[in-house]
Nucleic acid binder design. Structure first.
Lengths: 323, 323
DNA sequence: GCTCCTTGGTAACACGTGTTAGTAATACGT
DNA sequence: ACGTATTACTAACACGTGTTACCAAGGAGC
């Protein structure tokens, strides 16, 4: 394109990249910019990536499940922050067919943020390709977890909330959908740990495909003396509440329920459902800064928020047996 | 890498790409594959893309909102299908900062499927770069809509369902979240059109941020004689049902409600909520075939399903006034 | 006038691949 | 024995960019 502007290709490169040490007269500079504008010229991303060794892409590796709730919002914000730094964010949902090794044969991103666990082979492959790896909610062998948030902490907070009200027998209710196992299992394990620390009785059950069977499951829990239930999310919490009500039990008098996500369904439920809310607004900034190292991005927000998860007390929890 | 296998680079390229017209002895072929395996060699995606003019990426351009429900499932399936064809699917949520023009400066994908509307400038830019554009649920100036699904059809189906039961005054209830406008407006407009065709009275209201105000909105609807409500989705439908019940109205006797998405909340609601379900399983195949033209993908599924949306009758709808 | 330094710019290499054209060796037909 | 066809392979170019090394012109210092 430069040739059409009466100047060498090198000069164009210098102008467009604002090369620090280069000496370009203002007139030439303007001529180049003018020509680029009229021709609609943009550099080839592949050639640039080939030469520099990495592209402008930040790959967001997600677990194999539909994105919704607070995490969806985080992705949106992260994408916007990265765009300001000149980086383009792509998402890629984890998939049975192609792992990170396969994906990296389609592009060489500037960075990969792992929101799901990576195998040592995947990590090694990315490292060999010179790809910047960031573990955020996902575990990468040999890398520190950059997330202020562990799924197990969610479970721990739920149990702590119930324990604070005096409950001594608690249970965790998992969703039917096994796609969610990657999220639900750590939450349950965190809850289990916390219950053990506090000396509470703990058990867990998983919902089945059949909606009607939830009633039986909840009946089993209450008859065994459980007074507090941690649900995987507000949707599961809602179905537990419904089942308890079908059984003639009253929430929270006979059974306290804690959900996760602070979603509309929990707010509209009767009684409204105590839940765990995510405060991910600052995390998006932090992550962006972490990914765009060496880019012109506003400095990483000074302090990490002490807690990225927060309990939202509502009507579905109370001391056991209307103490 | 080839040099380490005692063979020329060209031969490596021929072997790894299974070049049709090439003559390679079996021993050499094995030697190359062996060397590639031991060295862990994979071709540079950028160099390949630079040479061939396009990469293995299928970019999925999404509207600016969190993905959930049936569309999330579709994306997952599409990604798997494309992976089988050797293509890697990335998603990119529409963003205020970077439009398609910006994105295409980070990579040159094999194809872009537009699930949101594109400006003429964006379409022209993609065309100039030789990117295969497919309009699926999104409008691209000058391109045919490949989706068997229009959002307006959802609204039309909802109104038709209510009309079939004898309702003569219907209303559309939109969600508060304006991020969803891209989806909700076409649904409302389709409903409006259908109502006009059938000679029904039609109006629409939008929920506000304040959950409590929903009661007032629903009260207004019923006092004005509305007997049937089409909700943007099951969540909105649920909140309408709750509001009606708070007002002492009975569903479906005093008010029929139709949602969208066939989600858990609608199934668990009392009464359960009549909804519109999406059958997108075949669409994923069709889309994949459309995107992977010239690739070794199983042929496009023979027949298009007649209907990709389907009404699921449940307890929240009945003839008006318990006819 | 000669050398040295700064300003403004360019020629040429390298990135790693796909592809075309070409070469050496062997087989085949007569 | 000679021309032709086939097999097996390779040299060399091109893709579009970033970057290093180099060159020309003009002024400053002596």
């Amino acid at each position: 394109m430069a040739e059409a502007a009466g100047v060498s290709r090198t000069t164009v490169s210098f102008v467009l990249n604002d090369r620090p040490g280069a000496a370009i007269s203002e007139t030439t500079r303007q001529r180049v910019l003018q020509a680029a504008a009229t021709l609609g010229y943009v550099p080839s991303p592949e050639a640039r990536a080939l030469k520099t060794g990495r592209s402008d892409i930040v790959l967001c590796l997600l677990p194999d499940w539909p994105i919704t709730g607070p995490l969806g919002v985080l992705l949106k914000k992260l994408s916007a922050h990265l765009a300001e730094a000149g980086l383009t964010m792509f998402s890629h949902q984890r998939n049975a067919v192609d792992d990170l090794t396969q994906v990296l044969q389609s592009t060489t991103p500037a960075a990969v943020v792992a929101m799901c666990d990576l195998t040592p082979a995947e990590a090694a492959f990315a490292q060999q390709r010179g790809v910047h790896l960031v573990a955020w909610m996902g575990v990468i062998p040999g890398y520190p977890d950059e997330a202020g948030l562990r799924q197990s902490d969610v479970g721990r907070l739920q149990v702590s909330a119930l324990a604070g009200l005096g409950h001594e027998r608690v249970a965790y209710v998992l969703p039917h959908d096994t796609d969610l196992a990657w999220f639900s299992d750590p939450r349950r394990d965190g809850a289990s740990e916390r219950a053990a620390e506090l000396g509470l009785a703990f058990e867990h059950v998983r919902l089945t495909d059949d909606v009607g069977s939830t009633t039986g499951l909840v009946d089993g829990l209450t008859t065994s003396g459980t007074t507090g239930v941690c649900a995987y999310n507000d949707e599961v919490a809602f179905s537990v509440v419904k089942a308890a009500q079908r059984l003639g039990r009253e929430v929270p008098r006979d059974l306290s329920v804690v959900g996760v996500d602070d979603s509309v369904i929990g707010r509209l439920s009767e009684p409204s459902i105590t839940t765990v809310s995510f405060e991910l607004a600052h995390e998006a900034e932090n992550l962006a800064a972490l990914l765009a190292v060496g880019r012109n991005l506003p400095a990483r927000s000074s302090a990490r928020p002490a807690e990225v998860i927060r309990l939202v007390p509502r009507a579905s929890t109370a001391p056991p047996g209307r103490a």
